[in-house]
């Protein structure tokens, strides 16, 4: 180290005294503000390490004096959110879906909660907004309900499901395999299909075929679909006189359904496997929401 501080003649800046091949390094210190912030950051990091989770152990970690954890914070926030919801949940307890729908505040709450639950659980089959999907996933936004479109009917359907093997109280009805089990001949199946289409003014079958179809219908179908073909909610038997066809309204599709019926299945949401079933409040909120999509029946 030189004993005397040397100044560079060109810039007037002090040198550090380091020299390489005749080139001397100028001593241009870091800006003060930068340096002080740097020192402050060091002090801050030490304080931070004392108070906040910092040092990892082989198993676990040093949690700091405050033992802060983001996971715990989330749990607190969730608890707080549940706390805020509980005001409405308590009011909703013991009320029927109709009573919930009459209270504007509870209605808003139930619609929001129902929409979220619907998107999580129902939308994969019924599509967002209850638009339904082809192949037997009914539209929930229309006015046609297989198992009934009152609030109570909808709630029972959600709770116990349809043909669900999880729930003994599930909605259960079976349509025989008229064609494939040999109950009716091919011609009889075709005749009854023509008759069914004629109920809603479709098809171009002759009077003779229709008379035969009507005869078969009266013998085989009226017990579930009713004498006039308007269906029966108790058996989930669809109305055959309207414009809505769950499995399609073409002649071939109707014949296929009579021949070997497809029977839709919906889980019992109260009793889903592994204790993942929906709670009572969620089911009621879902009921209110689903009913609101198309205004029920």
């Amino acid at each position: 180290m030189p004993t005397k501080v040397e100044k560079d003649s060109v810039t007037g800046t002090e040198t550090t005294g380091h020299e390489w091949d005749g080139i001397k390094e100028l001593n241009t210190p870091l800006p003060k503000w930068w340096l002080y912030i740097f020192y402050a950051s060091i002090i801050w990091s030490v304080i931070y390490c004392i108070f906040m989770p910092s040092v990892p152990y082989i198993t676990g970690y040093f949690g700091g004096i405050w033992d802060y954890s983001q996971r715990a914070t989330v749990e607190e926030q969730l608890a707080a959110a549940h706390q805020r919801q509980s005001v409405f949940l308590d009011r909703m307890a013991g009320l029927s879906p109709e009573q919930v729908a009459e209270d504007p505040e509870l209605l808003t709450f139930a619609l929001a909660g129902g929409a979220a639950a619907f998107a999580d659980n129902c939308a994969p089959c019924h599509a967002l907004g209850g638009a339904g999907n082809p192949g037997g996933y009914p539209v929930l936004a229309d006015d046609d309900w297989l198992w009934g479109g009152t609030m109570d009917d909808i709630m029972v359907t959600i709770r116990h499901g349809i043909r669900s093997d999880l729930d003994t109280n599930t909605r259960l009805a079976t349509m025989p395999n008229f064609g494939s089990d040999g109950l009716l001949s091919r011609e009889q199946v075709a005749a009854v299909a023509d008759y069914v289409l004629s109920l809603s003014g479709h098809g171009d079958a002759g009077a003779e075929t229709l008379a035969e179809g009507a005869e078969i219908f009266a013998a085989q179908c009226v017990s579930c679909h009713g004498a006039d073909g308007t269906g029966l909610h108790e058996f989930g038997a669809p109305n055959l006189t309207d414009a809505i066809w769950l499995y399609g309204g073409e002649r071939s599709e109707v014949i296929a359904q009579v021949n070997h019926p497809r029977l839709g299945v919906m889980p019992a949401w109260e009793e889903r496997a592994n204790g993942q079933g929906l709670d009572d409040t969620t089911i009621r909120m879902l009921t209110v929401y689903v009913h609101s999509l198309g205004g029920g029946e």
């Binding site: 907004g129 638009a131 539209v139 229309d142 109305n239 309207d242 414009a243 198309g294």
Partner: peptide
């Protein structure tokens, strides 16, 4: 206008939009 469903067919055959 409702985006989902765009329209529904009612049981009497009429078309409804939400």
């Amino acid at each position: 206008h409702d985006r989902n469903p765009l329209f529904v067919t009612l049981s009497d055959g009429s078309i409804r939009n939400g």
